[in-house]
Amino acid sequence: MEGDVKSTNEQSLRFQVDKWLAPGPTTSVHVVEFSRTLSGRRRYVCVETAQPAGLRALFFFRHDDGCWRVFPPSVDRPKMSTDCLGL
């Protein structure tokens, strides 16, 4: 059961923001943009945090499996199979 909780936590946007932007306890984090991608209409957010070295921002993308990641999901493209060719 503990493995399920861990994998669920690692899917969350909060986990990914903590992992990639590493905000401190007194660092503010802001969602500065959220919308859907033009291709695939998948959700994304841009999160910004102020660090002593300056502002840091990253885009996070929601994948079909429910996970948030820093890279966009692959675009669904038509696939050809031998069934389509009548082979």
Rank of each mutant, 00 (worst) to 15 (best):
V29P: 09
P23M: 09
W68T: 04
S35C: 06
E33R: 13
E2W: 02
H63F: 04
L85D: 01
L58S: 12
T49N: 03
G86E: 03
S39P: 00
A53E: 14
W20V: 02
G24M: 03
K79P: 00
T37Q: 04
T8Q: 12
R36T: 12
A53G: 01
V29L: 06
S12D: 02
P52H: 05
P73E: 13
C46L: 06
G66A: 06
E10F: 06
A53V: 04
R36M: 06
V31T: 13
Q11K: 15
S74H: 10
V47Y: 04
G54I: 05
A53L: 07
R41V: 00
L55M: 13
R42E: 10
V31H: 00
L55G: 00
K19P: 00
Y44A: 02
P52A: 02
C67W: 03
A53C: 04
V17Q: 08
D64V: 03
R56Q: 15
Q16S: 11
G54Y: 08
L38H: 08
R43H: 12
F15L: 02
D83Q: 09
K19D: 09
L13W: 09
C84Y: 02
V32W: 01
E10L: 06
A53K: 13
G40V: 08
G66T: 05
Q16I: 01
F60L: 07
G3S: 12
Q51K: 15
S39F: 08
E33H: 11
A57R: 15
S39K: 09
L38A: 10
D18S: 12
S7C: 03
R41N: 15
L87A: 05
V32M: 02
V70M: 02
L85E: 07
D76I: 10
R77T: 14
R14M: 08
P52D: 03
P52Y: 03
T82L: 13
F15D: 09
L87D: 05
E33F: 01
P73H: 09
W20I: 01
R41I: 00
R69T: 01
D18I: 05
L87S: 06
T82E: 07
F60D: 10
Q11C: 12
F34V: 00
M80K: 08
D18P: 00
V70R: 08
